[in-house]
Design a protein around this nucleic acid. Structure first.
Length: 511
RNA sequence: GGCCCGUUCGUCUAGGGGUUAGGACGCGUCCCUUUCACGGACGAAACACGGGUUCGAUUCCCGUACGGGCUACCA
């Protein structure tokens, strides 16, 4: 019988959770949802030196904003396997228990080397032209560990509380093979694997031991993580094997990395000219916060949609999908092996698609607070109409203000390029005519304004350039649907703008 | 350097021994439009290279190049 799908997202609280981490969480979430399984948040805080205040809460907040909440784990309700923080689990002695088991079985050993001694060893090896200095089956013979020291000495050191680590005893030359759901068979020789530290001298487990113990204890069925873990997977296989748990170990899936759009390497928060964090992140050790997708105006649905298609695709040419749709389609077999460069331009397009799907009322709701910051609080119907007009032109609600700002505030200057090109000697008379026609109106709505403009054209004896009218009223060469905009602005404002616009042109353009 | 992983339009990708190599973003042209968009149509644009295997390779194998990851008592 297949075991119940239980997957975990297991970040360490060493900083803000960036988009690569979110995607890993997302794939876990989709997989769990598809199979009706569990999605767990486990906090891997075994490195006390790298602990960052606020990071854990950030992870919880970010997942929540993205709508990919775990159903078990830190911040989301303890299930039957609590605690879900490794620092707390360590207190139960669970990691030491497994480490002791490995030692008893002869697959792990105590090592008493100081960091100075380790440095010395590496230097020595480098001097001897050893290409990859590592603590392994060969070098451990010259180090201070329970394999070289003799039983009595080891016992004495242990009893005298000498600091030690527990290392995995990796065999010298053994082929280690494992199957990755995404990559197929991967084969590595154990000579390439070093004697990994399992238990650190502060008593904390390393990632290598901790995640295995927890995955087993928490009955994790699939370990889904980034490609950066692929090189250490062989060591993990060995640990499972020596624990007698190779048959119970989770299936492995190593996700391709998200790469920088330009340049090279993993996506990085420093060089990116686009957000890499879902929510803005203030690192307590730094001065300036990093902006987030939320603050940039992205909808969480759009953000998640973008991420899902970075390395995965449903194979049906469909790109816009809800999380539910993605979940029904998701499978690791359709996750690609190669890294994906993130394309910020396409990300914007995604958001635009979601934006266009919103109702004017929804948009008004999200734009109202932004507009209030600028000092304007129009009534609901005005705001909805405003949103209707500007939404076709932007990708973010954040752009709504800039797009229609002229409605609230008189532009300081008019678009010169348009005027230079289109303003003629007769223009002053033409647009004065339009002004007079507008002034004479008693009702003011879209059809009336439109009809009035056409009447002006008739009276003028020919077409009147709408773009020039636009510039006179709004200052800009482009903007929302012109007559609709004029209708929304109201007669008084349009007339006043037209007057001031004409005055401005006459002083600056008429020679 | 060593080890591991990867390589289809600029980017995200589909496909897979015989295809006009498909879609999307972006880009260009046109249509719609007396403005601005949206929308629509069309177009330019890819199988890294070299050897095999095969009647036939973009697809399978090997090598090379290139890219990425790892190489800590970090995860």
């Amino acid at each position: 019988m297949e075991k119940r799908v239980r997957v975990r997202f297991a970040p360490s609280p060493t900083g803000g959770l960036h988009m690569g981490g979110v995607r890993t969480a997302l794939f876990n979430y989709l997989f769990a949802k598809k199979h009706g399984g569990d999605f767990i948040l486990r906090i891997e805080d075994t490195d006390q030196n790298r602990f960052v205040e606020g990071a854990e809460q950030y992870i919880i907040d970010a997942l929540t904003w993205c709508g990919i909440q775990p159903n078990e784990g830190v911040g989301f309700g303890d299930g039957p396997y609590a605690p879900y923080r490794q620092s707390e689990r360590k207190e139960t002695g669970i990691y030491k228990k497994y480490a002791d088991q490995l030692i008893a079985a002869g697959h792990a050993y105590y090592a008493f080397d100081t960091s100075e001694e380790l440095d010395e060893m590496r230097k020595r090896l480098e001097a001897a032209k050893v290409v990859a200095p590592q603590y392994n089956s060969v070098t451990r013979q010259n180090m201070r560990n329970s394999l070289t020291l003799g039983e009595d000495e080891v016992k004495r050191l242990l009893e005298s509380n000498a600091p030690y680590v527990v290392r995995l005893k990796v065999p010298r030359n053994e082929e280690i093979r494992f199957q990755d759901i995404i990559r197929g068979w991967v084969v590595v020789n154990s000579s390439q694997v070093d004697d990994k530290v399992l238990l650190k001298s502060d008593g904390m487990p390393t990632y290598h031991l901790a995640h295995i113990v927890d995955d087993i204890e928490m009955k994790i069925s699939h370990a889904v993580r980034g490609e950066e873990w692929l090189p250490s997977a062989p060591a993990h296989i060995l640990i499972y094997r020596y624990l007698g748990l190779e048959n119970e170990m989770p299936q492995l899936a190593h996700l391709p990395l998200i790469l920088n759009p330009d340049g090279h390497g993993k996506i990085s928060k420093r060089e990116a000219r686009f957000p890499v964090f879902p929510l803005s992140w203030q690192d307590p050790r730094e001065h300036t916060p990093y902006g987030g997708y939320k603050e940039a105006g992205y909808y969480p649905e759009a953000f998640v949609n973008i991420l899902a298609l970075l390395g995965w695709n449903p194979g049906n040419n469909k790109e816009l999908m809800s999380v539910d749709e993605m979940a029904t389609l998701f499978e690791f077999e359709r996750v690609s092996k190669s890294g994906a460069k993130f394309d910020p331009e396409k990300a914007k397009w995604f958001n635009q698609q979601y934006l266009k799907a919103k109702t004017d009322a929804e948009l008004a709701g999200s734009f109202r607070p932004l507009l209030k910051e600028k000092g304007y609080e129009p009534n609901e119907s005005f705001l909805k109409e405003y949103c209707r007009l500007v939404k076709e032109k932007v990708q973010f609600v954040n752009d709504f203000w800039a797009q229609g700002r002229f409605i609230f505030e008189t532009p300081e200057k008019l678009d010169e390029a348009v005027l230079t090109k289109k303003w003629k000697e007769t223009s002053a008379a033409t647009y004065t005519l339009v002004l007079e026609k507008f002034k004479a109106l008693h009702t003011w709505d879209i059809p009336t304004v439109t009809a009035c403009f056409h009447e002006a054209e008739t009276a003028n004896g020919g077409k009147i350039d709408m773009q020039v009218l636009r510039v006179l009223v709004t200052g800009a060469s482009g903007g929302p649907q012109l007559f609709d905009t004029l209708a929304l602005m109201g007669k008084d404002k349009v007339v006043a703008r037209l007057e001031s616009g004409l005055a401005l042109v006459l002083t600056n353009f008429e020679k």
